[in-house]
Design a protein around this nucleic acid. Structure first.
Lengths: 195, 195, 195, 195
DNA sequence: GATGAATGAGGTTTCATTCAT
DNA sequence: TATGAATGAAACCTCATTCAT
């Protein structure tokens, strides 16, 4: 008598446990035994649902990315003003409830790991370019193509840099300050490049 | 008498090998066996000189930090103009021969690991605060204290963000573009905050 | 469901294998690899059940102690005559099927090791004092306190000395002779100290 | 310009260091590195003088035996009275300055090890039989052969048992009590078996 | 005679994965 | 579906021994 529909529940359980485990023990310290203990299930279940440790990590990173992006894309669907959209992107990167110290920590852990794990690297590259191309798309409407590319790079670097440094600050990212820094950068650039 | 004075040579050899190993295999993939094979020595030698894997990693991170900072402190000792000094700091972060793709990769690996390794975390925190306090010191001479803090944060975030993203770009950091982004940010902020 | 209830079986298997290994190779020569080979299992299982080599050794010593003491406490529950009880203690120390050459060998190995291993030392001290205090308790009923202490020391020393020397005799302890030596000592002391 | 006559000095140095090392760290914990550090010499010297670790241990045991026996054979050369000689043997086993807690500890360590090390086992067997045959020789002059054998066994067991238990007592062997126990045993046996 | 750098086999332990139940 | 016992490869570390100096 198999329980039906357990798959999504178990998957969510394990991904959440993996997140907590990476947060607490880091990438090196994350083992299947620890994860399954946190999740309250047996070790065998991981291979059953994710095919192995790699699959679990990939799923966890994918989930983390989705959480962050869902937050980022939810806002300001109602406006088509380019500046509003850019502000919305910035806000989305720092304003959601996803911006926790744990998220910054885990995020950085994946960042370091992705360089040497093809599956994770793909996810990471997609993510890196999405932020930049989103920004560039709307900036293009406010300045010439080359300037837009330049500003998009600067803004993306600042956003990621804030996340990066936030992972080492006790208390994590100061969301208000983070937003202020990015908006100020945007403002300065718009002044400079305005048509 | 045995061969004397081998210590510094072996240490350098092993640190270099560790650097290469992290670059190629990542933190998880770096083992004593691989490192010693790259260095062309036996495995036992690592414990002999560094007391263990942890000591080797710490020494490697310390070495990397020193390389980066030596580059950063070499320039423009001759000027006391605040703006010149800040420009020098920016240049130093991107202009030296230390800014290789390998360095960015290894740097990011340490960054992710440091969160869960006390010894590395100490080194990392020292490094993070040094960049920002250096910037703040000279910015204070150009604007009021609070603004200086704000700009220092932004500049530090941008610098680190560029390194971070650079680790994922094939070809690594584009030094010219990196410098241009930071100098432009500085310029805009000086305009805004100028006395 | 996996095989349940394997724990006690495996533990017994491994303890028995450890016993044989110490008997054959001594304490220095006893390695996890050898033990698990004798037991016919993999090396990893030892940490799984005993947490490590130390735990295995401690469990083995505990088991050995229990075997010896179980033998010692089984006899003559029906009598309350002090002399009978003392005789029973002596008999128990030499009369059981536990008094094998292997037991003497392993016993001596633990003895030497316990001096520098806190966990084993605790077990050993408990055991040493139990023999003596048991003897003293019943001797006190036959002579004055100080004499009882004296005789208990002598008897305990003789019993342990016989075990000790027995470890080096081919064929092990001669149980009949051992008993005779101790009973004779007891008899002489009772003559001397009798009321 | 080789220093002449260093051999005996170095050998003594290393044997003494080995003794201390076994006392402090036990047999398992005794390594060439520790011994040579205690002795204040290099590691290579051990192989140079003793051919290896085994040789060092054997030499140390031999030295320990010699110390104990030299003490035992020094006394009462002037008497030919059998009882005097036996008393002298007993005294010698407990009265010398060799009966230290350290000696009991190291002695027991060798005892355990000797079972599985042919070189040490030979020394041990010689020693075990010497004590007993010495005792038997003089006892034969006081009682019939079979009784003498019996008493010699008992006395030897008691002596060794006292050493054994002494290794676990803080403060080591109580020399006065030890002697009293053995002399009392002898006295009782002489009473019983006297012609 | 003496050093200590270097080796590499071997020890313990960890851990992802498999599989009978 | 789910378990967890079991495996065995591989990691780190220790240490007796060798050898160029």
């Amino acid at each position: 008598m198999p329980k039906l529909g357990m798959a999504p529940i178990r998957r969510a359980q394990l991904i959440q446990a993996t997140f907590e485990c990476i947060h607490e023990f880091g990438f090196q310290g994350t083992t299947i035994a620890k994860v399954s203990k946190i999740a309250g299930v047996s070790t065998g279940i991981v291979s059953h649902y994710f095919g192995g440790k790699g699959g679990l990590l990939e799923a966890t990173m994918r989930h983390l990315l989705k959480s962050l992006n869902r937050a980022a894309s939810g806002n300001s669907k109602n406006s088509d003003d380019p500046k509003d959209r850019i502000i919305a992107i910035i806000n989305a990167n720092f304003s959601s409830e996803q911006v926790t110290p744990a998220a910054a920590t885990v995020w950085l852990a994946f960042w370091g790991q992705a360089l040497h794990d093809p599956a994770l690297a793909r996810l990471q590259r997609v993510n890196l370019s999405r932020l930049q191309s989103n920004l560039r798309y709307w900036l293009c409407k406010l300045m010439v193509r080359n300037d837009a590319k330049f500003v998009a790079e600067g803004l993306a670097a600042m956003i990621d840099g804030i996340w990066l440094r936030g992972a080492f600050q006790t208390g994590g990212i100061d969301q208000k300050e983070a937003t202020r820094l990015c908006l100020d950068y945007l403002e300065r650039q718009l002044e400079k490049h305005q048509v």
